[in-house]
Design a protein around this nucleic acid. Structure first.
Length: 427
DNA sequence: TCTGGGGTCCTAGGACCC
DNA sequence: TCTGGGGTCCTAGGACCC
């Protein structure tokens, strides 16, 4: 009996989520845009066939989309997160160890009881599709990196049927010889071209390179990747229970912001959101960083990143907002067309490890009940129910920093008001 | 006019110490 | 003031991921 590493990867996840509630869009070109309707982040197979590429700025392809009748959606992360949770809960019925690697991918560990790993993989595949309506690809191997390769070839565009096992040495080697080196998980847009220039064009060639050479060129992380491709596990599958190290909340503006007061509203908003995430996760942070910058595509450029360390860990909205605003005032330079702002908190620890008396600061021990009350209101009535004075202009319709989102789909699964009245589900 | 929003890990180099 | 080896800690930046 051995342990298998299985990767479940949703096909064109955001587009698939949108299609769930618009079944008439199946077999049609569909794309989903990033926040601010900036660029293309998810494409149906039909949209890929039109030559629309990942990360392409929308303004460059708008005309082509119009010509071919491409359906366009602004990203609806509330919907995607909810569908992601549903997929994960199906997987947890089939495996004890489920690692939700990203919103559209999960690793699970299965043991090969009865030698029926292929059957188990197919059962998983069928269950997710039947219960969520989201098409997925399933790859089975002995390491995470090889499971990635297996899933790659499980996709319809490579002739796969949704489930692919990469277990026999011969099958594995054939796959690696076919896989371009820059498609390997862990070899990115920087190292890929370097390796190709050196003649290492495929994963098959990569695994035949000398370890010392690999260590020097790719550092330890790259060497581990190669070990994994050779079949030696270096990255274990498991739910990561440790707290995150940092938390960033940021957004590009709908149009350039010049004045400090506009930036203050945005920073107050991002700081509040960061504090809320900390409380939801039962965590507290001690470092508060602010980032502001102009567009990279303007001649009048400025970017800044700076922060303060608090005297104690906290997740109090008011403390974090005030800190962020004072950092902002320090770094703000007049006259630049700012395009983006964000707040990052670091040095994150579990809330319970912080002395209860100081969790909200000695001067504000009474604030904890207030934060609880705010969280309860937000949970009950939504994000817009409670905001800070500093970000109040967000409530108005014409707030200069608010991002554009012109073609947003309804929050079908996460807002009572948007639940569809008819659900024409077709399997 | 218009180019996302999150994260992690590793390394090199500087500051500082004996 | 200069010489030198050897160690730790911290941070910025680079590389990767979705």
């Amino acid at each position: 009996m051995s342990i298998y590493t299985v990767l479940i990867d949703a096909n064109n996840f955001f587009v698939s989520c949108e299609r769930l509630f618009r079944p008439e869009l199946r077999n049609k070109p569909v794309i989903v845009l990033s926040s601010n309707d900036g660029c293309v982040i998810s494409r149906s197979e039909e949209a890929k066939a039109l030559g629309l590429t990942m990360g392409e700025p929308y303004f460059k392809v708008r005309e082509r989309c119009d010509q071919h009748g491409v359906s366009i959606f602004s990203s609806n992360f509330a919907l995607y997160r909810d569908m992601s949770r549903r997929i994960m809960s199906v997987l947890r019925r089939y495996a004890d160890t489920v690692e939700a690697y990203s919103v559209d991918e999960a690793f699970v560990a299965l043991d090969g009881r009865d030698g029926d790993i292929a059957q188990q993989a197919h059962a998983l595949h069928t269950a997710v599709i039947r219960e969520t309506g989201i098409p997925v690809s399933v790859g089975v191997a002995h390491t995470k990196t090889l499971a990635k390769v297996a899933t790659h070839f499980a996709k319809p565009k490579y002739g796969g049927r949704g489930v692919n096992l990469l277990l026999e040495p011969y099958v594995r080697n054939v796959a690696l010889e076919e896989l371009p080196v820059d498609e390997v998980w862990g070899i990115g847009f920087r190292l890929g071209p370097v390796l190709k220039d050196l003649g290492v064009t495929t994963a098959g060639k990569l695994i035949r390179m000398d370890d010392t050479w690999l260590r020097k060129r790719l550092s330890v992380r790259g060497l581990r990747t190669v070990y994994e491709l050779r079949g030696t596990p270096c990255f274990t599958v498991g739910e990561d229970t440790t707290l995150r190290k940092s938390l960033l909340h940021s957004q590009s503006f709908g149009r350039p912001v010049y004045d400090l007061s506009g930036l203050k509203q945005a920073i107050a908003h991002h700081a509040r959101k960061a504090a809320e995430v900390l409380r939801v996760e039962g965590a507290a942070a001690r470092e508060v960083y602010v980032t502001i910058r102009t567009s990279r595509h303007t001649t009048h450029r400025y970017s800044a990143y700076d922060g303060d360390t608090l005297t104690h860990h906290t997740n109090d909205t008011i403390t974090i907002v005030q800190t962020a605003l004072s950092v902002l005032e320090r770094m703000y330079r007049k006259g630049f067309p700012y395009a983006k702002a964000g707040v990052m908190v670091k040095d994150i620890v579990p809330e319970e490890s912080v002395m209860p008396r100081t969790i909200f600061g000695e001067e504000s021990g009474a604030r904890k009940p207030l934060m609880h009350a705010l969280d309860a209101l937000r949970h009950r009535f939504g994000d817009r129910a409670v905001q800070l004075g500093a970000e109040e202009l967000r409530c108005t319709t014409e707030k200069s920093w608010h991002p554009k989102s012109n073609t947003l789909s309804p929050r079908y699964t996460s807002s009572w008001a948007d639940i569809p009245t008819v659900s024409p589900h077709v399997a």
